[in-house]
Design a protein around this nucleic acid. Sequence first.
RNA 1: GCGCCCGUAGCUCAGUUUGGAUAGAGCGUCAGACUCCGGAUCUGAAGGUCGCGCGUUCGAAUCGCGCCGGGCGCACCA
Length: 812
Amino acid sequence: MSGVTCSSRGSAPSFHRAIAPSRLCRRGTIHDHGGPRMLETIRRELASAVAAALTAMNVEEAQVFLDVAPRRQLGDLAWAGALPLAKSLRKPPRAIAEDVARRLEEVRAGLAETHPLALLEPGFSIEGAGFLNFRLRRGPTLAHLLLASSSTVTDQGQKREPGFTPGKRGGSPAVARERGSSEGPESPPKKKMIVEHTNINPNKAAHIGHLRNAVLGDTLVRCLRFLGNPVEVQDYIDDTGVQVADVVVGLLYLPEVQLLAAVAPVWPEIEGTPSRARVLDALAVRAGEGTLVKETLGSPDFDDVCWDLYPRVTRWYEQDESALKFRAEVLHAVEGGFPSEMTLNEAIDRLVSPDDGPRTTDHASVSRLAAAVAEANLRCHLVTMGRLGIAYDVLPHESDILHRGFWRRALQLLLGAGAIRKETEGKNAGCWVMSLVDSPEFAGMADADKILVRSNGTVTYTGKDIAYQLWKLGLLRDDGGTLHDFGYRAFDRFAQEGSTAPVRYGFGEGALYRTASDPDERPAGVSFGAAARVYNVIDARQSYPQKVVKEAIRVLGHPEAAENSVHFAYEMVALTPKAVKRLEEAQGLDFGLSEEDLSKPFIEMSGRRGIGVKADALLVTLIGEAERAIAERRGADDNSTPEQRADRARAIAVGALRYQMARQGRNRVLAFDFDEALAFEGDTGPYLQYSAVRAAKIFEKLGAQGLAGSPEVDAEAVAAAAVPDDLWDLVFACARTTEMVEKAVGALEFSLLAGHARDLAQAFHKLYHEHPVLHAEDEGARALRRGVFRVFAATIATILETLLGIPVPAEM
RNA sequence: GCGCCCGUAGCUCAGUUUGGAUAGAGCGUCAGACUCCGGAUCUGAAGGUCGCGCGUUCGAAUCGCGCCGGGCGCACCA
């Protein structure tokens, strides 16, 4: 086996002579960990060596943590542990550090060249109050990184129009290879994880708040996959709630003038005889043709119609309370469902009489219409997210949770555990409530009970979420122990013009599925749920109900699963008053905000009032600005086609948007401002993209002059070279990428990763000016710079495309 | 009232999970950059009682306690 491992990586025989004369290739040598995890390996080995030295000094303390030295002149890695030991050992910290250093030196001297610690420079230094600092052998370390990144630049640095790397089971070739070798055949497979994000009510267009959710969720997915975890992505669809019902109320009952005001500007075919019947008919026709969702960026789509219709309905309720009876009726109808064979056409025929007279209230038909509304909005959302490189594996529908009896089963389990009771008196009389008085988490609450079933017998959101969460964790089981599961069916859209080839949403490799309420409906090989860990990306405003869900899992006897049910909370996206005014001007609207509202630092978005920045609208604006920027900057010297320029503008727009969402800490309210969102200079996505484009450009030019070199050639040239501080700084920072990803995932804080990417780009841009490659003084200098920039190019491409989901265009 | 989050340069924000060496970016302001790999870049300057106080510690932006200011929750909404 060891021979196989060696030969599979041994693409550079000359390098192996220089750095690794030993043919020994057992596990645990640096060659098994030379890629993205190289620095982790060295730190781990060094930590255990320090721990061993301490043991030899009769120190019991076992936890050894190696820091990164604050400035490169001081060293690369640092151990600060001598300082706290000074008291108990009654020795000055510097003396302790010296003792440890001496012992480490002895150990190091006896190591084989292939040992990870052989990459440490001999002669550890002690600085300041007693910091023990370590330096890496720069040339050999850089050489290792070059070989690990081999192929990334040559593959990706070529002329290439922007596109998304498949986020699916992803990673660059280098990453995938490294994963395979670093874990080895014996290491147990990592456990399955589920990330649930997006979760937009399917009753109107997505806005920038939803974008924050989806970008955070998708970034988490990408990072988890990068670290080798199998991840399933879910987008929960609340297709039976009040919000969808309100749009249906709008279509069926809202005074016709209002309905037409929302629909007419978008659907020209109703112009001749504008009426409710024409609107519903047009809806059915479009759905039949497959044109209800048009997917053309920049022109209004069905979700835009709903965006306009929905606030009109809520305003109607405010003006006329009796209209609320329609909402209740539609909700009731939706709950009942409809026969699976019922078509939308049939439903609409029954809902509209030919002369547009009194409408029937056929419940199954209303329910069928609601399903169509939800599905059309959902498809719009999937298209919007696809534009940002965000894809899903499965779409659990709330209607299926209900019809499949998830809640019934969850209720039985809760009853069995004695966690729920039916109130017979007091304000909650007639409700099923979960008592939280015994839970420390809820101590001090005035009313520590949570209603799960209303007095009218319907289940609350929290109740449904408990059932859903149990299913995700594989804990929703029937008495026999078998999983209580959904059915599934494909949710691909189909290409127009008769093709039956599905077109995938987003850029994932696998097909997209939705749930079904018949458990026997199950395409071969399809299975979802039952993960060891679940991340739920949900607004911080829902922290309380999320805690209740977690508590329910705990009291059902699954404390470990409860710990693995993670609420990934983030603060809301609001608008600056300036942004609100700009929206009002652009749309010719008046949101009716008070002076007090406008004096606040930010204003909350409101779908009900129609206050918000739509995701697609922002993307269109960004693309327009990017096109203008390209024209301004490149002018006559750009000989690309309009299509190429459009692609670049799109990549820049996506980069700006995703970076803005990732760079801000999740616990801070994001006050959206147009000027900030449209910035392409400084700490922005395009700044990072430009660094990647610039680096790739160097290799393009080098290639044209026959000076391209290769990772192997550069590795050999660099192994014995003296690497100056500034170049080494960049190399070392690149090597820290995996550490940063682990940190970001551990803290669920992607500002760490965004900041890391910006630091890398900044360092590169500076070096770019100071270290010319093409016009280097001599071949030695050129090879060194080429090697450093090659590592940077591979690293930044991986961070942007694989981790942050930011496409790197060929030109800008 | 109770709970959670935020307070760092004129403005927008990193850094707090795991205390460590001289607290960092961007924007804005001012002054600059080679006939040479793309100026969406780079260099320099000015700009800080890390909200306030007390404590723990060899060491605090980071940990604890108490205040002050702001936001969000505490639904038979989702």
